[in-house]
Structure formats: C-alpha cells, structure tokens
Design a protein around this nucleic acid. Structure first.
Length: 602
RNA sequence: GGCCCCGUAGCUCAGCUGGAUAGAGCAACGGACUUCUAAUCCGUAGGUCGUACGUUCGAAUCGUACCGGGGUCACCA
C-alpha cells in the first residue's frame, strides 16, 4: 500500500505539536525507503546521513533531500534511478505541487500553499509551544557558569560566559531538559586568605588608621571599603586586640558572604540567577569529597607517585623537579598526567575539581556542561579526562569556551589595568547600555569567536544595532495590532477570531515566504540545543525580523499589501494571524535569550 | 616547542556537523517617507572560503602538513 496517510502531516517522530515540516517530511521519506527497499538494508547510520532540509536557494524548491545519493553506494544503483523510485511514491501526494530530480540526484519538492496555511494555523494554536521539541525528555543537565572567584565584583571578562551560560540553560530547558544552573564558588584557595587580609586592612582604615598605598598582592578594590566599615561597626576595635591570624579567621566567612551578595547583585542586573552555589570548601576536610574521590581513584589505580616532565620551551624560574602525587589523566586523552597535591601538602585546584565533578555525577548528572573563559582552554582536556574517569565513561561533559570580549569606545579599545583593580565592571556596563543590549550582543556571535563590544554602536538605536532591530520588529508587530484596533474597531482580533480566520487568503509570494521563514524555527531550535549554541537563535531572530520588516515596507509601496487592509476585513484578519505568529516566535526567542520584548519603543 | 581556538567580500561576522551558483550587516553608489512608528525597506557593486595535498559522486565544512593571528603551558584559581 502506498503512503497515502495524510494524517502523517501532523505527526512526527518526536511527537505531536512542534510541527516541523522538515522532520515530518524526513519521516515520510525514510518510511518510503523502508517500504521500497526493506528495513534490512537501511541501518540507522545510513538513515542518519539522509538530509531533508530547506535548500539554500529558493530556485531549488521548498524541501530537498540527498537520500538517493546517500543510498546509491549501498544499493549499488544509480542515484537518479533511486530518486525516480522515491518520487513515484510522492506523485499523488496532494500536498506537493512538483517534484524534480536534479544534478547528481537531489530530489526537490515544491509544496502547495495549503501546507503553509496549515502550518500557520498550527503555529497560532501552539503559541509558545511551537517549535518546542522534547529533545531532553526530562533528562537532567547541570550547567555550570560564571564561577568567578569570590574576591570582588564581576567584571567585563566574565559577562560573556555569564550571559552565554544563562541563555544556554534557558534553551535546554525549553527543549525539555531538566536544567540546574550552578555556580562553583572557589572559596578554598589562597586567594581567600588574601581577601581576608585585604578586608582587614579596610577594617583598620575604617577605625581611622592611615593605611597609605595598598600593599602589592592584596586586593586594592574600593568595594572592600564598606566591608571594612561594617566590620568596624560590628566588632569595634576587638579584632585588633587578637592575634591577626585569629581575626582573619573571623573575617573570612563574613567577607566571603559579602562578596557573594555582591556577585549575586551584579548577576541580577543581567537577570541571571543560579539554582545552586556550590562551595569548594565543602569538598575539603577529613572524609570530605576530595579524600573520597582520591581513594576511589587510587582503588582504580589511577593515582601514582611520579615525576612530571618540565614544560618544553622556556622554563619557568621556580620549576622544581620533584616526585608528586599524580592523576593518570593521559589514560583518558589528556596530554600529561596532572598533579593532585601541592608542594605544601594541600590539594591542587584540580583535585577539588575532580571531586566536584564526581559529586555532580553522584547527584545524578550524566550530562554536564561547563562554561569557561578563553584563558581556561588549556584546562578542557584534563576536565574531560576527569569526568571520564570518575564516571567510568558514563557521564558526558561539554566544555564551552567563551572567547575574549574587546571593549571599544569611539573606535578605540578601552584599556583596562588589572593592577589598579579598576577593571570595567559588569555593573558599569549594564548601567550604561542596559541589560537587553548587553545580553543580545554577547549572544550575537559564536561563543568561540572573539567579540567586539562597541559602546557607541550598542547604544545606538538603528538597524546596525541588532538588538533594536529585533526588538523593533516585535514592537512593530504590536503596533500593527493597535492600529488595526483603532482603524477597524468592528474587527474582532481576539485569539478565537484569529483561529477562525480564513488563512487560505494568504497567497501572495511575500506572505508565503514569511510563513516559510517561520517553518524553520523548530530546526533552528533543535540545532541550537544539540550543539549548545544559543547564538543560532539570535541569528534566526534577526533574519525573521528582516523578513518581517521587509514585508511591512512592501505595504508602503503598495497599499494592498498592508497588514491592515481597509478593502477586505477577511484578508486583514488572515494577515493578522501572520503578524501574531511572527510576534509569538520573536517573543519566544527573545525570552530564551533573556532579552525583553517591549510592545512599543519610546 | 606542546596543546586549544580562529583565518570566508575593504571591515565585522553567519554558513543548518559533507551538498547545488558561498550568504548577511557596515562602509560605497543609486532609489523609496502627507509613516499600519523610515528606529525601516529595495537595488547595484564586491570572494581562487589562508596555502598545498588527501578522503568521494560532491569539501568553506572531514583528515594530514605548512603559513599567519590569538590564548595557554608543574605547584595559582
């Protein structure tokens, strides 16, 4: 029997609802192949190579597949022969207006408008759920991002990773993963002692002491001044009478807590919130996770005493050739084995990190994502090695590296001096340009490519600024509804009325082209989630905005093409369905990126 | 020297994990406003995808080797 089940149009391999016509078509083609050649010949590997996608050029139709070429070798048949057999099965499909076999064996399908009409009505009724594929099926994912040292406010170097991680988390959530957003607090190392000392100095200052220039090696930032004052209020001069070591132990947890408050405030400015702040300190101590992890690794024979080759190239001055406790990272793909214990006997950062990732694994996260800055790219291999080791290869870790951000003002690079401690802070940037612009710009580039952040451009409200370009499209869609209500007060524009609209009135090329653009949204979402690349969403939104603005301006040249059409209420209503759908997707996409969708721009 | 990322239009970047004639924006040039907010749109011009081999029906995409740019390189975090 032929594949004449047109109900299949509404069903895809991934369930009802998301209405991805490419996925639906893919299923149809693969089922057809099974019917023609039998399931035996078509293993999954082969099927996976079959692409069913929108062709680059409109001249090649609406949907294109390479199926015939992919199968040609296994079937020992000419691709065009195979293509002919496939197309025979689709000849009577009422949704297809033409099929061509071209070039080496591409099959190009052209679809009838009614498919797009049916898609549009699905989009309207699915609302926010359009494109929502259940890829994750509730699988738990742990996404760790920001994780800056709790020694001061967040500065420009961390913003990108913060925004990226947050948007990625929303994206994964959207496609059905159970996401936990986590921040690893490095509250255990020597930098915390320095922090405490720095705060102690500010405390003495608050008590009236002249502290002069801040000693090299301490944190000079002014953000510690209020902490010092708080300490003075709380303790008076009591901390001066104790041995300094004792006082520092008292100060440490207080200043640490204050720093986390500071960091959370900064993140909140960008609407970033974590579910868990995980303390590195909690892994230390007797019977702590680090010890447990190391003895677990020892049992597996993955820890040994040995010497490390000194690094090639220029030797660092303080290189000390000594035997040390090493983790057999090379066994899991790293270039070198890695030290677990420092020369002073305490654990290395890496040791606690192994324990941390094991702890995550034991909490049930087989899927982990860590977002790091470019300066940590050398750390990726050992991290992956660690996760492989502690999970017996069962957990999957993806490390996303965010490249550097270059700040530009008036075309010149903003210089930052780390020495003075006066780095450009997150707060300064967000206060100046607003959270939406910061977020969108950070996401409007692949994470592994360096990024220029141009203050002048980001604050500009023009087409050059992608943030406003997309937001304006959204605002414009709202504005059209306001106009329609004003000019045609008798027209019912409620959702129910839109659902009853006669969409088949949309037959103009521009209208169909816009619906075709809407039809790729599920693909974009899927690809973005699969590759952990939220920037794809940003680019899609930009493209959709362009298509929408384009159509809008056509109405300027030709009044018949205006959305609000006084000559025909039914055409107006049908076009309003289109406007509503564009609006919905823009809104959903912006929400995933964490950028607001204003209904009007003032 | 090892490892990781990047070399695509004059500039800034996309390119759906191997597809067809490689795409946007800026800048340049020529057009469209008694506005469904022109904060926008249309058109023209611009490229041996760093180089050379290799894998195959087919490479910007995968592999190898170079060239150029950035990051990183016991013990810090």
């Amino acid at each position: 029997m032929r594949l004449a089940n047109y109900c299949a149009w509404r069903i895809s391999s991934e369930g009802l609802g998301h209405m991805d016509i490419f996925a639906i078509f893919s299923d149809k083609i693969k089922n057809t192949l099974k019917e023609i050649y039998g399931e035996e010949i078509l293993d999954n590997e082969l099927l996976a190579k079959i692409a069913v996608e929108p062709p680059r050029s409109l001249a090649h139709g609406d949907i294109s597949t390479n199926a015939a070429m992919v199968l040609s070798k296994n079937l020992r048949q000419n691709p065009r022969e195979i293509a002919t057999k496939i197309t025979d099965y689709f000849k009577n499909d009422k949704n297809i207006s033409s099929i061509e076999i071209v070039g080496p064996g591409f099959i190009n399908f052209r679809l009838k408008n009614k498919i797009y009409h049916s898609l549009l009505s699905s989009i309207l009724s699915l609302g926010e759920n359009y494109g929502k594929v259940d890829m994750g099926q509730g699988e738990r994912v742990n996404i760790e991002y920001v994780s800056t040292n709790p020694t001061g406010p967040i500065h420009v170097g961390h913003i990108r990773g913060a925004v990226f991680g947050d948007a990625l988390a929303s994206l994964m959530e959207f496609v059905g993963y159970d996401v936990v957003r986590e921040y690893y607090v490095n509250d255990a190392g020597g930098q915390i002692d320095i922090l405490a000392k720095s705060a102690f100095l500010r405390y003495r200052q608050a008590l009236g002491e002249k502290i002069g220039e801040i000693e090299k090696g301490l944190y000079p930032g002014k953000y510690l001044v209020p902490i010092g004052q708080d300490l003075a209020v709380k303790f008076g001069d009591k901390l001066l009478t104790k041995p300094e070591k004792e006082s520092l132990e008292i100060i440490k947890p207080i200043v640490l807590k204050a720093m986390l408050v500071l960091i959370k405030q900064d993140l909140a400015k960008l609407n970033i919130r974590h579910d868990i702040f995980f303390s590195e300190q909690s892994l230390h101590g007797k019977d702590g996770e680090i010890e447990k992890t190391l003895s677990w690794l020892r049992e597996k024979g993955l820890v040994y005493q040995g010497k490390l080759e000194p690094p090639k190239g220029k030797l660092s001055d303080d290189w000390e050739d000594r035997e040390q406790t090493l983790f057999r990272a090379t066994k899991f793909g790293d270039d070198s084995d890695r030290a677990l214990v420092k020369s002073d006997g305490s654990y290395t950062y890496f040791a606690s990190d192994i324990a941390y990732h094991r702890e995550k694994y034991l909490r049930g996260f087989n899927k982990q994502i860590v977002v790091l800055g470019a300066d940590h790219s050398g750390y990726v291999k050992r991290l992956k090695a660690a996760v492989k080791a502690i999970s017996d290869g069962k957990a999957e870790l993806d490390v996303k590296i965010c490249q550097l951000v270059r700040l530009l003002r008036d075309g010149k690079q903003v210089k930052m001096s780390k020495r003075s401690g006066e780095l450009v802070s997150l707060a300064e940037i967000v206060d100046e340009v607003g959270p939406d612009a910061v977020r969108f710009i950070m996401l409007f580039r692949r994470n592994d490519a360096p990024l220029d952040f141009d203050f002048n451009l980001v604050k500009e409200m023009s087409r050059e600024n992608p943030v406003f370009y997309v937001q304006y499209a959204y605002a414009r869609s709202c504005s059209i509804f306001r106009t329609a209500n004003r000019e045609l007060p008798d027209l019912d524009l409620s959702i129910d009325a839109l659902r009853r609209a006669d969409i088949s009135l949309l037959t103009i090329e521009e209208e169909i082209a816009l619906i075709k653009l809407l039809s790729t949204w599920p693909r974009v979402l899927k690809a973005a989630a699969k590759t952990h690349e939220p920037h794809r969403i940003a680019f899609y939104l930009h493209e959709l905005a362009a298509g929408f603005h384009g159509f809008w301006t056509r109405g300027k040249e030709n009044p018949d093409l205006r959305f609000v059409n006084h000559n025909s209420l039914s055409v107006t209503l049908a076009r309003m369905v289109l406007v509503r759908s564009v609006q919905q997707i823009l809104g959903t996409g912006l929400r995933i990126l964490g950028v607001s969708a204003p209904s009007e721009l003032s």
